[in-house]
Computed example of a mutant assay.
Amino acid sequence: MSGPSWPPAALAAAGLLSGSTPGGLIAAIGTAAFLLDAIDGRVARSTGTASAAGSQLDSDTDASLVLVLSCAAARSTGPWTLGIGLSYYAFLAAGWFRPSLRDPLPPSTVRKVIGAFQPCALLFALAPGVPATAGAAALAVALPLLVISFGRDVVGLELRRREYHVDAAPAPRARA
């Protein structure tokens, strides 16, 4: 028997603590997860099994994958890489304080492209044989794009909430 089989998240966390990240294994598993994620929504829509709960689960699992990959990449690129993995959770936490951030977002191709670029950049940085500077450069592009995307969504949700409240407010009474 070869020993225990550890989930990728445990491998990433153990690598951060021990100083040895199994990047090749995490990159391979992460690539498989990323490719499967690319087709699960299409399958759900084509079979009529798509739902709001499934969409939320998809977003949450995507965020988990990005967090695991950013933990693994942080070993070679630095702790700033964790910003990529933690951004989704920061957005969710901000929703506790700003109710408008809990509102549904309108569909956005730009958001989808930037969201797909994050795991791609992380997987590239983790791929065996990729120079650390090249991986860090990809992540140095990914993080600002993510900040811009989340910033755009925050502003859009806040503006929409303000417009709704202004429109929903009763009109002032005219003086007689």
Score class of each variant (00 low, 15 high):
Leu57Lys: 05
Thr133Cys: 14
Leu92Met: 11
Pro106Gly: 12
Ala44Thr: 00
Pro79Cys: 13
Val130Glu: 08
Ala127Gln: 02
Leu16Arg: 11
Gly95Ile: 08
Trp6Thr: 13
Thr133Gly: 11
Val130Pro: 05
Ser46Tyr: 07
Trp80Phe: 13
Val68Ala: 14
Ser51Gln: 04
Glu158His: 06
Ala10Asp: 09
Leu139Ser: 06
Ala169Ile: 00
Tyr89Leu: 01
Ala44Gly: 01
Asp58Trp: 09
Arg161Asp: 13
Tyr164Asp: 05
Gly85Lys: 00
Glu158Thr: 06
Pro107His: 00
Leu123Arg: 00
Ala73Phe: 03
His165Pro: 02
Leu159Asp: 11
Val166Met: 09
Pro170His: 02
Gly115Val: 07
Ala93Arg: 00
Ala33Phe: 14
Arg162Tyr: 08
Ser18Val: 00
Val154Arg: 04
Ile29Gly: 09
Val166Trp: 03
Ala63Ile: 08
Pro104Gln: 04
Asp58Asn: 08
Arg42Asp: 13
Ala12Gly: 10
Arg175Ser: 15
Leu25Gln: 10
Ala27Lys: 00
Leu36Pro: 02
Phe91Leu: 10
Pro104His: 03
Ala176Pro: 15
Ala140His: 09
Pro7Met: 13
Val113Arg: 08
Val110Asp: 01
Thr77Trp: 06
Leu145Pro: 04
Trp96Leu: 15
Ala132Tyr: 03
Gly95Tyr: 06
Asp60Gln: 13
Trp6Ile: 13
Leu145Gly: 14
Val141His: 10
Lys112Trp: 05
Leu126Ala: 04
Arg152Ile: 14
Thr81Ser: 15
Ala171Lys: 10
Ala176Arg: 11
Ala27Trp: 06
Ile29Gln: 12
Val147Lys: 00
Thr21His: 09
Leu143Tyr: 14
Ala50Cys: 07
Thr31Gly: 12
Leu86Glu: 01
Pro107Ala: 02
Val155His: 11
Tyr164Leu: 14
Val166Pro: 01
Arg173Ile: 07
Arg160Asn: 07
Ala136Ile: 06
